[in-house]
Amino acid sequence: MSIITPPETDQPEEPTARPMPTHRMKEYLSRSYVRRILIMAVIIMAITVALGWVVVGFMNMTGAPASDIMGDLEQTVLIFTIASAPLIAITLSTIFYSLIGWKHSSGDEPPMQDSPAIRTNAFAVIVWITATSLLAGFLVVWGLIELATITSNAYGSVSANQQPNDVKQIDINVTGQQWVWSFEYPDQQGITSDYLVVPVNTPLYFNLTSEDVIHDFWIVELGVKIDVNPGAITNTGVTPTKLGTFNIRCAELCGLHHAYMETKIQVVTQAEFDAWVRDKGGMKTA
């Protein structure tokens, strides 16, 4: 391009001439449809952000988060909603305005005249790519940090006999079979149960395996989920922070009575837990 110099004065209105960005932006904002779309976008953005709380509200319908993990992931849902709100708002406000503002009035016939031939717009493309990349980058970074935190706190942490002595942790062996859960407490003399009783504020560490098909161990209100596979042992962990009784469900289709494969987890105080262990025939926890 540098070799060919354009003629000096032949074309007073060069198509390559560009106004200064500030002037351009000012002129752009003076167009009525731009302002209307922006206003709509702001409104939609507000609604989207509000919807983030609605989503979390539905997740909390059976009570507030019962573990840090559940709290963390509700926070993630909120943050992700807020982060993607601008792009959603621009998209939706454009299609709404297209339907309302740019609609061709007599729909039976094609418009008399074609629309402006906009082939591309470098500015819009660059801004869009930058914005979506930043958003995706943010989601990735947030997700990685979040995952690392959860992993180091509870998820996939080490087994009890490798813990430092001051950390009191309860190992639980979970066996899934069609269509019941069974739980074994190896540190409590191997007592077994078909529902879980655990002390509050104590890290739990689950070893899981299945005797037949794949199940999925889901403590709903604690935000813990892991597949229970035949022929393999998976691990997960969580620290319940709230007293109460919560749901354990199977979240992987496992055959005839998959729908009924559920049980309870009772989060109780340490004293109550010790009493329960004694009733079951186990010794007091160390």
């Binding site: 087994s159 006999n161 066996t175 074994e184 070893n207 035949p230």
Partner: peptide, 11 residues
């Protein structure tokens, strides 16, 4: 490798 249906990772 763990044995099927048993928690052999527990030492």
């Amino acid at each position: 490798a763990p044995t099927f249906g048993v928690f052999t990772s527990q030492q």
